[in-house]
Design a protein around this nucleic acid. Structure first.
Lengths: 331, 331
DNA sequence: CTACAGCCTTAGAGCGCTCCAACAAATAGA
DNA sequence: TCTATTTGTTGGAGCGCTCTAAGGCTGTAG
C-alpha cells in the first residue's frame, strides 16, 4: 500500500516536483503541454495529493472540527448534515467526535480535535464550562450551536425558543383556547426560554398561565397529563415532541380525544411528528440551517471576512397538523 | 494563533527536541527528572502535539475515514456512534463525510477521505459500484456496513434479514396465527432477504404466504392495508417500522383494533417503535454493534492481526411489545 | 547578434514531527 | 582499575508537500 508521491509523478512526467505541485493546485501558470503530461502521469500512477503533508507545508487547514455531544440524537445528526453540506461545497473536510455528555470526555475530544489544527471548530451543545471553550477559541475559530455563551470570541447559532413557544400559544389562542397549560422541560437544554416564552405569551393575551413540571420524554409527558385529569385545560403546549406524544397517549387512555377534547402542540418537528399516525402540530427548528450557518460562520473567519462575533438567533416556525382544533368544551 | 512547537518546549525545558518527542509518546526510557521538566514546559506553553505532522513523520495514521450515505437517517447516526466509541477507545479519530446517495458525490467523498491516508475506511451503505470500492481497498483497509460485496479484500458487516423475518413469523405462529401477510419493501435495501425469509418461514410452517407490494414509508403501509380490508389476515409482518405504523393507523381508521383484531410486527426497532404511544413489536438491528464491529475489523487489520476478509452477519432479535397477541377471529 | 522582456520551470529551504544511529554517563563485571 | 554493558540523551535525515527566489527559454526589438 505504499502510495506514489509527488516525486514519482514528477519523474514519470519528466518534470520537477514543484511543477507537479502547481498542477495539483490548479495554477494557471503552467503550459498546457506540461499540465497534460503531469495529469497523465498522475492518473497512471493513481496518485492523489496527501492532505496532511499539504496542510503541514502550506500552514493552512481545510479541516473543520466538529464535536457532537450526542450523535444518538437525530437533532445533532441533522446539524452535522448541514455542516457537511457547506464544508463540502468549499472543499473542507469534517473531523468529528462525540463528547458523550460528560465534561471530561468532551475535554478529551476537544484536545484531539485541536491536535489536527483545524481551521475552525463547531461545538454542538457542549457541556464543558465556558473556560474550556475560551481556551479552545484561543487556538482556532469556534462556533457554538444550541448553546449560548457570553464569550466575546466565539460565534453562536441558536433557535429563539421564546418566540417558538409564543407561536404555539398564539396559534391556540387564535383557535379560541383560553385554558392553555405548559408541560415544562425542567432542567433540559432550552427549557428555560420555552417556559419564559409561554409565560410572556399568556400574559400578553391576559390569560392565566399554568406550568406543569415535566421532562423531555414521552413517559414524563404521560405522567404530567395524568396529574392534570381532574382539572383539564383545553390545550397543552408541550416542551418537545416526545413529551407531546406521551401526553396524547395518556389523554387517549383516559378516554379523551385529541384534538376534539384537548389540543396538543409539540416542539422540534422531529420525524416522529410528521408520521400520519401522530400528525402532531409542532414548532419547527431549522436544524439543517443551524449546521449551514455554523459552517459559514467558521468559513467567514477563516477567510478573514469577519472578526467580531456573530450571534444567530433563528426563527422557529409553526407547523400545523392534526392535533390542534378549536375547543368544544366551555372555555 | 501561532502555536508552540516541539522546539519551543525543548528550548524551555533545556533539552533536545527528540527528548520532548519521547516524552510526548510516553516512552519509558526517559528519566523522571527530564520528563517532569518537559511536561512542565509543555503545560506552561500550552503545547499539544500536531497530529498531522506526527502522522506524516511516523508514516502511520490514527484516523479512520467514514463515509455515510445519508446522515439524515438515524440508522447511520447510530452506526457512526458505535464507530466513534471504538475509535476513541483506541486513540483513533474519525473523519467523516457524506455521499448523498449519488455515485458521483460518493466518489468525491472517497477521494477526499483517502487524501488523509486513513488507517481504514468504513463505508456505510455506499451506492458506488464495486469497482470503486475495490480501488479504495488498494489504498487502505475497507469495511462495508449494510452492503454486501463479493470483493475478496474488504470486510463487511450486515444483519441477517432473512433470519429477522423468520423470528417475526415464528413469533406470530407461536401465538396461533396462520394467516400472516407480508408488506414488502419493494426495491428498498434489504427488502429482498426479508421477503425471502418470510417465504421460507411460511413454507417451514406449512402456511400459505401472501406478499403485498409496499414500500418503506408509513403512507405506503397504510395504502397496502386499505387494499387488504376485504380479506384481512390475522397478522401482518411489515418491511420496517415506518411501514408498520402506517399499517396500524389504517387499521384503526377502519375501526379495527391492534392487536385484538390484527397483530402487527415491524422491523428495525427505531426509537419510534419504543414510544409507548406506538409500542410496536419489532425486530431489532444492532446498529451500534454494526459500528463497533466495523471499527474493530479495521483496527484488526491496522494491527496486522488479520489478512483474510471477515463477514459479520449479525443476528437480529425479536422485541415483543404491544402490537402482537393471539388471534381472536377464526384462524 | 545582443538585450530584455516576458513566461515557464526548478532548486532548495522548510512545515512539525519521528526515528535511527551515535554518543555520554552511569553501572556492572573482571 | 579498566573494559563491557546498560541507560538516557541527542543530532540529523527525512516524511510529502508548499513556496520563494532564481534560473532557462522563447521571441521580439534594437
Amino acid at each position: 500500500m505504499a502510495r506514489p508521491t509527488m516525486d514519482d509523478v514528477a519523474a514519470r512526467a519528466g518534470v520537477s516536483r514543484a511543477l507537479v505541485s502547481l498542477v495539483m493546485r490548479g495554477s494557471p501558470k503552467v503550459s498546457d503541454r506540461r499540465r497534460a503530461a503531469v495529469l497523465e502521469a498522475a492518473a497512471e500512477l493513481g496518485y492523489s495529493p496527501h492532505a496532511m503533508a499539504r496542510s503541514l507545508a502550506s500552514r493552512t487547514s481545510h479541516v473543520l472540527g466538529v464535536m457532537v455531544s450526542d450523535l444518538h440524537n437525530a437533532f445533532f445528526a441533522e446539524v452535522v448534515d448541514g455542516l457537511d453540506a457547506v464544508a463540502a461545497e468549499h472543499g473542507f473536510d469534517l473531523i468529528l467526535n462525540t463528547g458523550g455528555r460528560s465534561a471530561a470526555r468532551e475535554r478529551r475530544a476537544l484536545r484531539s480535535l485541536l491536535s489536527f489544527r483545524p481551521a475552525g471548530l463547531a461545538l454542538l451543545s457542549p457541556v464543558v464550562p465556558a473556560a474550556d471553550i475560551g481556551r479552545a477559541a484561543e487556538q482556532t475559530s469556534v462556533v457554538l450551536v444550541a448553546r449560548s455563551s457570553r464569550l466575546a470570541t466565539v460565534d453562536a447559532v441558536n433557535d429563539d425558543g421564546e418566540r417558538g413557544i409564543t407561536l404555539a400559544v398564539d396559534h391556540l389562542v387564535s383557535l379560541g383556547h383560553k385554558r392553555i397549560a405548559h408541560l415544562d422541560g425542567g432542567g433540559g437544554s432550552q427549557a428555560a426560554p420555552r417556559r419564559r416564552g409561554y409565560l410572556a405569551a399568556m400574559a400578553a393575551h391576559g390569560l392565566t398561565p399554568r406550568v406543569v413540571a415535566s421532562e423531555y420524554t414521552d413517559a414524563a409527558g404521560a405522567r404530567a397529563v395524568r396529574g392534570l385529569l381532574g382539572d383539564l385545560p383545553t390545550a397543552i403546549v408541550a416542551c418537545n415532541d416526545f413529551n407531546a406524544v406521551g401526553a396524547i397517549s395518556a389523554l387517549e387512555e383516559a378516554g379523551l380525544r385529541v384534538p376534539r377534547d384537548v389540543s396538543v402542540v409539540g416542539y422540534d418537528n422531529t420525524s416522529l411528528a410528521a408520521l400520519r399516525h401522530v400528525s402532531l402540530t409542532t414548532i419547527d427548528q431549522p436544524r439543517h440551517e443551524f449546521g449551514r450557518l455554523a459552517a459559514e460562520a467558521l468559513l467567514q473567519r477563516v477567510r478573514g471576512e469577519r472578526v467580531e462575533p456573530v450571534r444567530h438567533l433563528l426563527r422557529p416556525s409553526l407547523v400545523v397538523r392534526s392535533t390542534t382544533a378549536p375547543p368544544v368544551r366551555p372555555a
